[in-house]
């Protein structure tokens, strides 16, 4: 399986660059034409105005071209998103429980942790719920986010494709400790992860 192709974070970057690119071109065009008109048709240079009430071909073109562009944006956004909603079958399942104001991660073997420790290059599926109010699990490095809603299970998946320690935030406001509901994603080599995963003592230090 070509996991690199499937990595949803690559899709997010692609969609962002496409939309941002089109947006910058549009903004520069609109602004420079506007400024050009302001200078060229200043009252000193152009004392009499011409009344132009419309121009059908022009008006059709600036309906049709933006429509094509935004439908393309929708399409790329949607296909990129579809990948994010289809966790690979070999993904490691981790249950996430959010509460005011901490995270708890429970692994398939029953191990619990306050930080999310995952092996390199194995897709991770998080099954998320909340014990109290709405929270949202956000890992900027892997471009994923999903709300933790009480009474409901939501999910997301990502591919930890580089080792290291990455920020994990709560991104749905949840009270006085919202800003401190911050944890880490620790991506380890498979060997290190196995060692950590099999360790019996409770990971209470976190």
């Amino acid at each position: 399986m070509n996991t690199e192709f499937l990595n949803p974070s690559v899709n997010v970057r692609g969609v962002f660059l496409f939309i941002a690119g089109v947006s910058v071109v549009m903004l520069v065009l609109v602004t420079s034409i506007m400024v050009f008109f302001l200078i060229k048709y200043d009252r000193k240079r152009n004392p009499t105005a011409s009344d132009i009430e419309g121009n059908l071909p022009l008006e059709i073109s600036w309906v049709v071209i933006p429509t094509v562009l935004v439908v393309a944006m929708f399409y790329y956004g949607w296909t990129g998103f579809s990948v994010m909603r289809e966790p690979p079958a070999d993904a490691m399942n981790v249950k996430v429980s959010a509460r005011m104001w901490s995270w708890s991660f429970t692994y398939e073997n029953g191990k619990k942790s306050g930080e999310l420790t995952v092996p390199l290059n194995r897709p991770v599926k998080l099954i998320i719920t909340s014990e109290d109010v709405i929270h949202s699990l956000f890992i900027p490095a892997f471009r994923v986010k999903e709300d933790a809603v009480p009474g409901m299970e939501t999910y997301l998946w990502f591919l930890p494709d580089r080792t290291g320690s990455y920020d994990l935030f709560c991104s749905e406001y949840c009270g006085a400790g919202h800003h401190a509901m911050v944890s880490k994603v620790i991506v380890m080599s498979r060997e290190d992860f196995s060692r950590w995963y099999e360790k019996k003592e409770k990971d209470g230090a976190n």
């Binding site: 997010v12 939309i19 790329y76 956004g77 296909t79 990129g80 994010m84 986010k145 999903e146």
Partner: peptide
């Protein structure tokens, strides 16, 4: 914000 893939981020 409107595109799904980027909205999530």
């Amino acid at each position: 914000n409107g595109a799904l893939a980027t909205n999530i981020y």
